[in-house]
Design a protein around this nucleic acid. Structure first.
Length: 921
RNA sequence: GGGCGCGUAGCUCAGUCGGUUAGAGCGCACCCCUGAUAAGGGUGAGGUCAUUGGUUCGAAUCCAAUCGCGCCCA
């Protein structure tokens, strides 16, 4: 081609739009620096908020380790909520927090000391814990900020803040004052070597060989309808002979079938299914089953303890199985969690004749003074053999809980602990009522928390640990009376507020008590402090009180809690207990839960499977906006999946959305909405159709935000960008944008629509991909432009533009477009035309399509709107009485060297069509 | 073992009250363009709706069981 008219076109220039390659890992920190510089969070709060406050209360992550993908999901969702509510006219303060006290940090710090061969005292350990927690608060804060989260990051709440710790003491005091707090027994897994209770997480399961024994309990009150009462015995099996002295009952399953078995002159009762294997173990081949009975009929029967003058009644329990043993569970309420529950249910005493070191106490009678293993076990077995109660002994290998620290086999002991009563003053009912007032999203959450609250036992608040807030009680050294009054609690709280909770462990009791304080019970003046600390769920459960009420720009209750679904039994529950207990109201109005992040196959992420995706790596390689877009793409009310493959697809989606925005921004470089915009009435049908379609999209998008269904917004936005924009509208208006004269109504009309599209999309995307939206925003020619996209409002649907009739009319045109595409594709495949640009189509259209199309003039010129819509150089329409037909042929004329359309009026010398001739002038 | 959920195309998701041949975008294959170019456009092929049984004139949709997966509890 002789002429080059490229420079006369209005092509978008690279430097006037956003870069095609986002380079998010480098660019995002710059936008974050910009937001810090302008103090974006503060400015967001200062914006007018016609809809009032919306308080999303942050559930505190534990200040230990790097953030993982679950944190990223949770915090990104929160950020999308906060940003989108702000853009819908709410004031959205967001105070992030951390959970600092507790076992994981204490254990990590202890291990550091252990590695150095040091044995720290409590204060040294606690100080190290505080430093450790502080260090991870810093680390996680940076990681969260790198995700692009907006909030009060320079003033977060920490549960180890002195004021927070003092607040915990006061809330404990309030609950005590209201009658919720009591001391009681509780079964705990206990390490006799470390002489401490262990949390579940500190228990390691290892193989162990135990002494398993079969013991016969003589029946003193036989079951009704027993086939015989002569020498009747109930047979049990246990792997912990040392618990026999604490036996108080024999548990059977109500629905299991039991058999009376006669052998060797006695009749034994055991589970029918286990008769054969048991007899085989005993080496007995000669036995007779006299009859069977279901467990529920055994209730009321009473046996006698084989060693002591004590009865052991038959009780019912659902946890009894016929898997191994005899189907009758030897029950020692002092030495097992299930046994304890059964003991409570049947009003049995809680006998625990074992001290902290694992030595039998006086309550164990003849065994007193013996360590429970191995001497205790041996002695018990020996005595059982002597009285003829031992039927069989064998070593038994099984998984058994061990101490994580010293690897000693653990035992169950009942110990005295502090509790919050869940049924005090109708508390449980009040909590259940409050649950019904809360909006749960998804609605199954209500079922789940209701079940959790209905079934939860009293809350054990005490822990025998170092890193926590001390329970603010004293004991009289003389009479052991518990000292816990509003005055003593408030004194302690004031001191902790000033000096931190370490002070409780540093100073003597007298430091916290008024001068001259005497025991109200016995008048003595010597006291010791409680050494237990509060359960950390008490810490986090108190945040609603200690954060929402403490900060003037927040309020109780919060409008929203948003956490993983595991928190129904965790934070939602503990917060509710404290909320109902101290404020008689739930701490939240609405609760949203999300699922867990699984791998591409739907399996749990774990180091051993090697399928863990680190958010930090994703941010480093692809950018936070890609990770955030993934969050938005997920239907998060259920479990979500993440893998490298999924990330690749999300990155593709990001690029497509970005390129769409890039094209629009590039073509708006010379557009000023205030002076160049074309009034709606003067826009052509296609442009008005685009605006109408934009309104439909916008309505859908706003609804998706309203219902927290960001994945619907994601999908619709992706479809809108690809289908309506890239593949259609943006393609069609290129001729006008590039080839028409700069200020022509045709070009300015297209830009007017382009501006609306970009302006709308950018703001809608801002909560999800805040960095990219900001980058686009800074390039958009918005009049009186706010300094950041995050200080704008969401667009609202313009009903005047939502022209339903036009949308309907275009439906048939778009269908026709598909038919035309197929016809052109076929002509291309048959080598009748090389490409659509060189084609002319003739549409033989029946009514009513012909009527619709007739509204558009079809000259052999660039302003043939139908030709532009169908992507060919020329198009004409013909009425038809038969079905629709699209005829494709080579367009007559020659190709304009400037606009590349094949037209009849292209000048041979200049190679320009009439339109381009006029434009170039 | 119990409670609460989930299972639709390679991926992410729609699918209203049970009602035509189960949809979309991406990805994939083939083609076009080279003036959105580490872009853009067109056409097309992909489904035993986890499995089995039941209810119904009719089931992705309702019921039951089974399998797989997740959270919580034991």
């Amino acid at each position: 081609m002789a002429h080059n008219y490229r420079d006369t076109l209005h092509l978008p220039k690279d430097e006037q739009t956003i870069a095609m390659r986002a380079n998010l890992p480098e660019q995002e920190p710059r936008w974050q620096a910009f937001w810090r510089e302008i103090d974006l969070y503060q400015r967001m709060l200062e914006k007018p908020a016609p809809n009032g406050d919306f308080i999303l209360h942050d559930g505190p992550p534990y200040s230990n380790g790097d953030i993982h993908i679950g944190h990223a999901l949770n915090k990104t969702l929160k950020d999308i909520v906060v940003r989108s509510y702000r853009m819908r006219g709410y004031r959205t303060p967001y105070v992030p927090g951390w959970d600092n006290h507790g076992m994981p940090i204490e254990n990590a710090v202890s291990k550091e000391f252990l590695a150095r061969g040091e044995k720290p005292d409590k204060i040294t350990l606690r100080r190290a814990c505080r430093e450790y927690a502080q260090r991870y608060v810093h680390i996680q804060r940076e990681q969260f900020e790198r995700l692009g989260l907006v909030g009060e990051w320079d003033n977060p709440y920490l549960t180890m803040d002195y004021a927070f710790e003092a607040g915990l003491v006061r809330i404990f005091g309030e609950l005590a004052q209201r009658g919720y707090i009591y001391r009681g027994l509780r079964p705990t897994l206990w390490c006799p070597t470390c002489q401490t209770a262990l949390a579940d997480a500190e228990v390691e399961y290892d193989e162990k060989t135990s002494d398993s024994i079969y013991v016969a309990f003589p029946v003193v009150k036989p079951p009704a309808d027993a086939p015989t009462t002569e020498n009747l015995k109930i047979l049990i099996w246990t792997t912990t002979p040392w618990t026999i002295p604490a036996n108080l009952a024999l548990a059977v399953h109500p629905e299991l079938e039991y058999a009376y078995v006669r052998t060797n002159g006695a009749v034994y009762l055991l589970a029918h299914r286990l008769v054969a294997p048991t007899m085989e173990a005993f080496g007995i081949h000669d036995y007779t089953v006299l009859g069977t009975v279901t467990g529920e009929h055994l209730q009321g029967a009473v046996a006698k303890h084989p060693l002591f003058e004590r009865e052991s009644p038959v009780v019912l329990a659902d946890y009894v199985t016929a898997e191994d043993g005899t189907g009758v569970v030897h029950t020692a309420p002092g030495h097992g969690a299930e046994d304890f529950a059964t003991g409570k249910k049947y009003g049995l005493p809680i006998l625990c004749p074992v001290d902290a070191a694992g030595v039998f106490t006086q309550e164990a009678g003849e065994f007193a003074g013996l360590p429970i293993t191995p001497e205790g076990n041996r002695a018990v077995i020996q005595r059982l053999r002597e009285v003829g109660a031992l039927l069989h002994y064998e070593p038994y290998r099984h998984n058994y809980p061990h101490c994580w620290r010293c690897n000693t086999p653990l035992i169950f002991r009942t110990t005295e602990q502090w509790f919050m009563s869940i049924d005090h003053a109708g508390h449980r009912e009040r909590a259940l009522n409050a649950i019904r007032q809360v909006r749960w999203i998804p609605p199954e959450g209500e079922t789940r928390i209701t079940a959790a609250v209905q079934n939860r036992p009293d809350w054990c608040l005490s822990r025998q640990r170092a890193w926590g807030v001390g329970i603010p009680a004293f004991y009289c050294e003389a009479c052991n009376a518990v000292i816990l009054t509003p005055e003593t609690v408030e004194r302690i709280a004031q001191i902790i507020e000033r000096e931190g909770s370490d002070v409780w462990f540093e100073k003597p009791a007298a430091y916290f008590l008024p001068e001259g304080f005497v025991c109200p019970q016995c008048g003595a003046s010597e006291f010791r402090k409680e050494t237990d600390v509060l359960d950390v769920w008490f810490d986090s459960g108190s945040t609603s009180r200690l954060v929402l009420e403490a900060r003037p720009h927040l309020h109780y209750p919060a409008d929203l809690y948003l956490e993983g679904s595991d928190q129904h039994r965790g934070w939602f529950n503990s917060s509710l207990m404290i909320g109902i207990g101290t404020r008689d109201a739930a701490p939240y109005r609405m609760v949203i839960t999300h699922g867990f992040v699984l791998d591409g196959e739907g399996r749990k992420m774990s180091k051993s499977l090697g399928n863990v995706v680190s958010p930090l790596e994703v941010i480093q390689n692809m950018g936070a906006d890609v990770l955030r877009l993934w969050v938005a793409s997920c239907e998060y009310f259920e479990d979500v999946r993440l893998s490298q493959e999924i990330l690749k697809y999300v990155a593709d989606a990001y690029r497509q959305i970005r390129n769409t925005l890039r094209f629009m921004v590039g073509n708006l470089a010379d557009f000023n909405p205030e002076t160049d915009a074309v009034p709606y009435e003067q826009l052509n049908d296609l442009d008005r159709w685009m605006l109408a379609t934009l309104q439909e999209y916008l309505r859908y998008a706003l609804n998706a935000y309203d219902s927290f269904e960001y994945h619907k917004f994601y999908h619709e936005t992706r479809r809108f960008c690809n289908v309506e924009l890239s593949a259609f509208y943006l393609d069609v208006i290129k001729d006008r944008l590039y080839a028409e004269s700069r200020d022509s109504a045709a070009r300015r009309g297209a830009q007017t629509v382009l501006y609306e599209l970009a302006h709308t999309l950018t703001r809608l995307l801002a909560p999800i991909i805040p960095h990219t939206a900001e980058e686009v925003w800074q390039r958009l020619p918005v009049p009186n432009k706010p300094i950041s996209v995050h200080l704008t409002e969401f667009p609202t649907v313009c009903e005047a533009w939502h022209d339903k009739a036009l949308l309907e009319r275009f439906e048939s045109i778009l269908q026709l477009r598909e038919a035309a595409n197929r016809a052109v594709e076929q002509a291309k495949n048959e080598k009748r035309i090389p490409n659509p640009q060189s084609a002319k189509i003739v549409i033989h259209a029946p009514e009513p399509l012909f009527g619709t199309l007739s509204a558009f003039p079809t000259p052999a010129a660039p302003d043939n709107l139908l030709a532009r819509i169908f992507g060919v150089s020329q198009a004409t329409i013909e009425p038809s009485v038969s079905e629709l037909q699209v005829e494709v042929s080579l367009a007559p004329g020659r190709k304009c060297a400037r606009c590349w359309l094949v037209l009849p009026n292209v000048d041979e010398a200049t190679e320009l069509c009439g339109r381009c001739q006029a434009v170039v002038g």
